Simulated scan of single mutants.
Amino acid sequence: MTSVRTTHVGSLPRPESLVRLMYDHQEGRGDPAELEAAVGDAVHDVVAMQHTAGIDVVSDGEMGKPGFVNYVRERLGGFGGQAPPWSIDDLDAAPELAVAQYGGEAGAHIMPANCEGAVTYEGAAAVARDIETLKLALDKTGHDEAFVPAASPGCIATGSPNLHYPDYDSYLDALADAMAHEYRAIVDAGLLLQLDCPDIPMAGHTAFWCRDEVSRRGLVGFAERHVAAIDRALEGIDPSRVRLHLCWGNYEGPHHLDAPLAELLPTVLAGRPTMISFEAANPRHEHEWEDVRDLPVPDDVVLMPGVVDTLNNIVEHPRLIAQRLQRYVDVVGPDRVIGSTDCGFGTFVGFGRVGAQVAQMKLRAMAEGAALVRA
């Protein structure tokens, strides 16, 4: 029987020493050589951890990035200044949760930028360094399959206000053309590319600077435009080497305003990427396997349901993980299901309720659960 394989979304808990060094770097202080050495050590350790836990497709844990999207301010020309933070509608019902998660030092270091000029890609050296560091860690562990996350054009656009381009479409296309260089570098290096796309599900319940675009186009129309930007950026890239991650926000909150997966998934399935990651473990979205079952999933699509929650410290039982995986195996078969996490464990530096030890336990449980499905 074909094995059900395992992976995760990308970011993993960073060592506290690395968190401090990254904060210094963001503030324009510290020794770049010291930071680079610390990143290399952290990537080696985190790849070894995933290998030991039994994860099939690993990542560098985003150890060298301050966050899954704000890292681009150092890789894109035309960005600068300090953008205002976005707010999340469902947290209005629980403001204490917003303060607890975003009100401290970690929240102050998200530091999104504005688009103040023509967008250009200036990150060739940085992405090459990411690739080399990850490959060295893979060689040391003997692991042979890995992915690198990167922000999607829409993810960048929603978080960084446009102060330069005449309209949203021009801005989005400029981002797609610039980030295409990073995407190609990752795939050309023999690694899988993951595009982080929280912009698509979160557009319905988040006060991004471009909320009027969501209102004008509608949630599905907004998603279609962002998928079109992804397809533009992936021109000439093998779609089977690309994963797309959907997320409603990796934060503790009611999530009672989350858009249904069934409303957005057909648009995503029509795009180029053939591996689709989505939340399927947390109590707001676990039930949506029934919607996936009832949708026509193209024959070339691999489903990557989250079967482990990244926002609590309870380690899922392997049998529960196997049950969650089995639902999707019954829909598309075991060779088209890869078990994953709902989101990352450390989306921004200093963020994350789950520490490194529990994250490793959760990944191990996922591997054990996948083994039960194989049996």
Score class of each variant (00 low, 15 high):
Gly142Ile: 06
Arg293Pro: 01
Gly344Tyr: 03
Thr158Met: 15
His256Trp: 10
Asp89Cys: 05
Val268Glu: 03
Glu96Trp: 00
Asp196Ala: 10
Asp342Pro: 06
Glu235Gly: 12
Ala262Arg: 13
Leu311Ile: 12
Gly40Gln: 14
Val220Gln: 07
Gly218Asp: 10
Gln326Ile: 08
Gly64Trp: 02
Asp330Asn: 06
Val349Asn: 08
Ala270Ile: 11
Ala137Lys: 04
Arg73Thr: 04
Val315Lys: 06
Pro15Val: 04
Ala42Val: 06
Pro318Thr: 09
Ile321Arg: 00
Val57Arg: 11
Ala259His: 08
Glu62Gln: 08
Val9Gly: 06
Ile314Phe: 14
Gly333His: 04
Ser215Leu: 13
Ser277Thr: 12
Pro66His: 05
Met111Glu: 14
Val308Pro: 01
Arg319Tyr: 13
Ala33Cys: 04
Gln357Arg: 15
Asp167Leu: 05
Gly28Glu: 01
Lys362Gly: 07
Ala93Glu: 15
Asp291Thr: 15
Ser17Asn: 13
Gln357Val: 15
Gly103Asp: 04
Ala367Tyr: 10
His109Arg: 10
Leu320Trp: 12
Gln194Val: 08
Phe345Thr: 01
Ser340Trp: 10
Tyr102Phe: 15
Ala38Lys: 05
Ala33Gln: 13
Pro273His: 01
Met275Phe: 14
Glu182Cys: 06
Pro15Gln: 00
Glu34Val: 07
Leu21Trp: 03
Pro84Trp: 12
Asp212His: 14
His285Asn: 14
Gly249Tyr: 08
Glu116Lys: 11
Pro266Leu: 15
Val292Cys: 07
Glu62Phe: 05
Ile314Ala: 15
Ala151Leu: 04
Ser17Lys: 15
Thr206Ser: 13
Asp90Leu: 03
Pro318Asp: 07
Thr158Arg: 05
His255Ile: 08
Gly218Met: 00
Trp289Phe: 15
Asp173Asn: 08
Leu295Thr: 13
Asp90Gln: 14
Pro283Tyr: 14
Val354Asn: 10
Pro112Gly: 09
Gln357Asn: 14
Ala375Phe: 13
Thr310Ser: 07
Leu136Thr: 15
Met366Cys: 03
Gly333Tyr: 10
Val4His: 01
Glu16Phe: 05
Gln26Arg: 01
Glu288Ser: 15
Leu269Trp: 09
Ala178Ser: 12
Ala38Ser: 08
Leu265Gly: 14
Gly78Trp: 01
Gln326Ala: 09
Asn70Tyr: 07
Phe348Ile: 13
Thr341Leu: 05
Asp299Arg: 12
His285Arg: 15
Asp139Cys: 10
Tyr171Asp: 03
Gly64Lys: 06
Ala370Glu: 07
Asp309Ile: 11
Gln357Pro: 03
Arg5Pro: 02
Val9Arg: 00
Met179Thr: 15
Arg324Cys: 03
Pro283Ser: 10
Pro198Thr: 01
Val9Thr: 13
Val220Tyr: 00
Pro318Gln: 07
Ala48Asp: 02
Glu290Val: 10
His317Asp: 12
Leu175Gly: 09
Met304Ser: 09
Arg20Tyr: 00
Val308Gln: 01
